[in-house]
Simulated assay, not measured.
Amino acid sequence: MAQERDVNPWVKMGLELGPVIAFFIGYNRWKDDVFTIAGTDYNGFVLVTAAFIPLMVASTLILWRLSGHLSRMQILTLVLVLVFGGLTVWLNDETFFKMKPTIIYAMFAAILGFGLMRGQSYMAALMGQVMPMQPEGWMILTRRMTWFFAALAVANEAIWRLMSTDAWVNFKTFGLPLALFAFFMLQGGLVRRFGLDNGKG
């Protein structure tokens, strides 16, 4: 197994967010255009999705090359991009790509929820070495994350079904990252309370 290496945080952020920003720019540039390829008409959304897939693969491979490691979340995200992005292009139907965040967050909620039913925090198993906390803290954080991921899945499903494609692209590009950032920022008190470096552990 390759040894995990530190990657410059800005480089890591660029590799993770770059494809999403590129998708946003490409969509807004070509969203009103129709492209005819081999006798089939494709709208801008589908063509930008087709470009997003190899860009996502390349950025993930570069991150793996630099760090020597990919998390389960990164691997799952890449697989779902390949599957649902591929279906979007192959069937010429943007519905599949819009469903991808719903599937991702619903799966995360289900996996964490299953662990909670067994009295376990899978987050502790994944992140315990990076962010040491008491077991009670991990259980609280895992319950919060389960509900948070479930809410994101519902929100994505509601937005792509009930609102415009423009609204969904804005939500995916800006809303989801901001929601994740805000959620983890709000957990600071929990980490301070149950962290093992605060004299309690």
Rank of each mutant, 00 (worst) to 15 (best):
L87P: 01
F52H: 07
F148W: 08
M145N: 05
A38K: 11
G86V: 13
F108P: 03
I21A: 12
R72C: 05
F35M: 04
V11R: 09
V79Y: 14
T88H: 04
A158P: 13
R65C: 07
F84C: 03
L141T: 08
M127F: 14
A179F: 15
F52G: 00
V7A: 10
F184W: 15
L55H: 02
N28I: 00
V20G: 07
D197F: 10
L141N: 04
A179D: 15
A110I: 01
F184H: 13
T88R: 02
T77Y: 00
F45A: 00
A158Q: 14
A155G: 01
A22C: 00
G18S: 09
M133W: 01
G26F: 08
Q129P: 05
Q187L: 10
L66D: 04
K31D: 01
G14P: 05
F148G: 03
P19W: 06
G119C: 11
A182W: 14
M185K: 11
V154Q: 15
M131C: 03
E16N: 12
F35T: 02
V7M: 11
P54A: 15
A125Y: 01
G201W: 10
T60K: 14
S164F: 13
N43Q: 11
F97P: 06
K172P: 02
W64K: 11
L176I: 14
G137T: 01
M185G: 01
G119Y: 09
V89C: 10
R29N: 06
G113D: 04
L70R: 08
G39V: 13
M99P: 01
G201I: 08
M163V: 09
T142S: 10
R118I: 09
G18E: 06
F183T: 06
A2G: 06
Y105T: 01
T173E: 05
R192F: 13
A110C: 08
L126A: 08
G195Q: 01
S67F: 10
L180Q: 07
Y27H: 00
A167Y: 15
T60W: 08
L17W: 14
L180D: 01
I159L: 05
K172Q: 11
T146F: 03
V46A: 03
P101T: 02
R161M: 10
F171T: 04
G44Q: 00
G86K: 11
L63Y: 09
Q74E: 13
M73L: 14
Y27F: 12
A38E: 14
G18Y: 10
I159T: 03
A58K: 13
F52I: 04
E16K: 13
L70G: 03
F184M: 12
N8V: 12
N156G: 14
M139F: 10
R72Q: 12
M1P: 01
N156K: 15
A158L: 15
T88M: 06
V154M: 15
V81Q: 03
A58N: 13
V89R: 04
Q74H: 12
V81A: 01
V46P: 13
L141G: 00
M56L: 02
P9F: 11
M13C: 10
F45P: 01
V79C: 12
T142V: 06
L176W: 08
R72E: 09
A58C: 14
M99S: 02
N170M: 07
W147S: 13
A50M: 11
G119H: 08
P19K: 06
T142G: 10
L70W: 06
W10C: 06
M107T: 15
T165Y: 05
W64F: 12
G119F: 08
P132Y: 00
R144E: 04
A109C: 12
A50I: 09
L76D: 06
K200W: 05
